[in-house]
Write a protein that binds this DNA or RNA. Structure first.
Lengths: 253, 253
DNA sequence: ACCATACTCGTCAGATTGACGAAAACCTCC
DNA sequence: GGAGGTTTTCGTCAATCTGACGAGTATGGT
């Protein structure tokens, strides 16, 4: 049986007119968890780690860790991301997803976790694993098969996927999956794999090139996709798309 | 100077194979804050409380409080909502907004808060104040004038407003502001006040009555708005609107 | 009875989408 | 070096949706 935990929250020694938190306050351990998505090998994949300790020993889990003193939430997320992937710079897209705090979600005690959604191209996530060397990419389609994710991470992953699918509808976030320069077809492949749907290449081309601020043409071309050379584009500066690019199958059948 | 806080997190006495949280773990106090919006007196208003204790004594703040042991986050939000407004049932719309955990956001120590967004009709928020008797409605346009909101609540309020403005675009959440039965004009007034924009009554009528699952006609009529009798509607069961109802002024001017 | 008010239905041009034809510009293979 | 395959890119066309606005309908007030 583990001993009672130390220390209490560092809520003292603040020069503030004698104001203090209530003495009977419940405190919780605070962690961040990451839903880091990328497109690899023609599939949407998520970064997972194999847990090296109890509970859920050897089970797959989302990468994450505890927030440190004096650290902001997004700061902790960026740090964990760097530790788990060797990622130098913050990813092109990182946003807070939601917070999960069910009382029994961690059998060790009250742990509340703030989940973040990150999107990154394959090239910038070498997984030079330092902290949890057991990190690996898992296809999202089967990520919750097999042993099953630790804690409530299956729920977090599902929420992250839904957020990603929805986000690329009305924002340019899908470019976060791409290399700095990419073709329209590569971007279309992102949409198709994230949504799990086929898109018409001609209509997609018209849409993305016609939406102001979405793509910036470079004037250079590549043939890496085979066929006729395709122009290379860079991300534009439009944070939102107007009008949105809607998923083919409406939400209500 | 306040004494060190007790107790440490209740992370012990869990029968779980001896797994325990790390002993040097940072713990935080956890609170929920509410952005409760309603439409009153032809204005979009937010529920505020005047703080009765330090820090930020007598300053306006968002209603909220600390999460209790064994309590889930949404549960704590509903409880606080009931305590601050006398609201019996959970509001028609309640969703997690975001979590704010900057290290210095509370001068008393490390307090992380999970903010919720709630939308309610005026009739169901009598403010039979029990807990913080000093709760009151403030117009959002001037809510951050005057003394200024406590803590980072101005940021939370701004995020909540943006979420609400965006949410009613692609979901039927605006009906959460309405009484159980309402006219198209009353719903249109909601949109106009939340967005701060004029909408054409004829196009709005066509849009909301033509979107499947948005409104359910009751067959009954009212003349409470003056003029020709208007049909009364109830909320439909469509969680999302397809296509969305877009704000008149695009996000990027 | 008349008028002001507000709801509801219609019309019409412009924008956007989905489906699809077809040309352009590369590749590989024979 | 040409044939055939692949992929990008440009157009066309009908259907749908939006924004602007005209007009009729059904009340309440004076």
């Amino acid at each position: 049986m583990p001993p009672p935990l130390e220390p209490p929250p560092d809520t003292t020694a603040h020069p503030d007119g004698g104001a203090a938190l209530p003495p009977d306050l419940v405190t919780v351990a605070l962690s961040v968890d990451l839903v880091l998505l990328t497109v690899r090998e023609e599939r949407l994949q998520v970064l997972l780690v194999r847990r090296g300790i109890e509970p859920f020993l050897d089970r797959p889990a989302l990468p994450g860790g505890f927030v440190r003193p004096g650290e902001d939430l997004a700061e902790a997320a960026v740090r964990e991301l760097a530790e788990e992937t060797g990622l130098r710079h913050p990813p092109a897209h990182l946003e807070q997803l939601a917070t999960y705090g069910a009382p029994q979600r961690d059998p060790r005690g009250r742990v509340v976790t703030v989940a973040f959604l990150a999107l990154a191209p394959q090239s910038r996530t070498p997984i030079a694993g330092t902290d949890a060397a057991a990190s690996y990419w898992g296809p999202v389609a089967t990520a919750d098969d097999g042993p099953g994710l630790a804690f409530d991470h299956a729920t977090i992953l599902a929420d992250g996927l839904e957020r990603a699918r929805s986000k690329i509808e009305y924002s340019a976030a899908a470019t976060a999956f791409c290399e700095p320069e990419f073709t329209v077809a590569e971007l279309r492949r992102i949409y198709e794999l994230v949504w799990g749907a086929r898109l018409d290449p001609r209509n997609f081309h018209r849409k993305v090139t016609g939406t102001a601020g979405f793509l910036v043409p470079t004037g250079r071309f590549t043939t890496r996709d085979g066929g006729r050379p395709a122009e290379l584009y860079r991300r534009g500066d439009a944070p939102v798309l107007h009008p949105a690019m809607l998923r083919p199958v409406p939400r209500l059948p």
